[in-house]
């Protein structure tokens, strides 16, 4: 299949810079890992966060980081910063000149192996959470966990694609997109009730990142929602992930109509 060939070309090209790949992965592992350490050290003093234990917060953190890291690796071509460069330099023209689906080409153009550092960090934190929590894993929960993970990847990917679409019109606005992508993720790493009502509502109903991580986590912990949403919200993650991705792709295709290439 042509997608696999294109993707493997991208990986082969990256393999030529093995040393910098390793350094980048390590800095992500160290940087994000130390961020968790800072939280854990402070947490230790106070003992709980809105009634959540350190292990439970680590569960949220790990899940979010694994999902976001994987998304960042797989959707790297849509990273608004990267895609914005394609637009400004006119390299998108090159993709448009090939008889291959454009979206497939963008996916294949940038598979960022260095994100493995962040994924590893998330996996370590997640392992720690499972170690301290001793959760009662039922078969249903075990089956739902990978579904949640994939849903979160798709959902975050949709945010990236939406951000990339914005770069058809604006360069300067791209940093604001970070509020939704990186900000929405950062928010996912903590229990939702700690945030103000407007933030909670925004990230539950408008850009529903809470639905792909926080609510499923409630199900894994067998907790009711302190904010009063019904239990089935925990199972909306796949629908929200897929729906968001579908919508973002539609918006992207529409945005492509407004692509103006560059003046050179």
């Amino acid at each position: 299949m042509i997608f696999i060939r294109l993707a493997s070309a991208t990986l082969r090209a990256q393999a030529r810079y093995r040393a910098s790949l390793l350094v980048d992965a390590l800095s992500a592992l160290a940087g994000n890992g130390l961020e968790f350490v800072a939280l854990a050290l402070t947490f230790d003093r106070f003992g709980s966060l809105a009634g959540w234990s350190m292990g439970q917060v680590a569960f949220l953190w790990g899940l979010t980081e694994i999902a976001f890291g994987s998304m960042d690796m797989l959707f790297g071509g849509f990273d608004p910063a990267v895609f914005g460069q394609h637009i400004r330099r006119g390299t998108l023209d090159m993709y448009l000149l090939r008889p291959v689906n454009l979206i497939a080409q963008i996916f294949a153009s940038d598979i960022m192996l260095r994100r493995l550092g962040r994924i590893a960090q998330g996996a370590l934190v997640f392992a720690y959470a499972n170690h301290v929590l001793a959760l009662a894993w039922t078969p249903a929960k075990l089956l739902y966990l990978p579904v949640v993970l994939v849903s979160a990847v798709l959902f975050y990917g949709a945010l990236f694609i939406a951000g990339a679409t914005a770069s058809f019109w604006t360069v300067q606005g791209l940093e604001v997109v970070n509020v939704f992508t990186y900000g929405g993720t950062a928010l996912n790493s903590y229990p939702l009730p700690i945030f103000d009502r407007w933030l909670r509502r925004f990230f539950t109903f408008v850009i529903p990142t809470a639905v792909v991580v926080y609510y499923p986590a409630l199900y894994f912990f067998d907790l009711p929602d302190p904010l009063g949403l019904p239990g089935w919200v925990s199972f909306l993650a796949p629908a929200v992930g897929l729906g968001a991705l579908g919508m973002s792709l539609l918006v992207f295709k529409w945005g492509l109509r407004h692509y103006t290439s560059t003046g050179a």
Binding site: D93, L96, L97, R257, Y259, T260, S261
Partner: peptide, 9 residues
């Protein structure tokens, strides 16, 4: 040329 090659609408 960009229109003839399908890059621009």
């Amino acid at each position: 040329i960009k229109m003839m090659t399908g890059i621009l609408t």
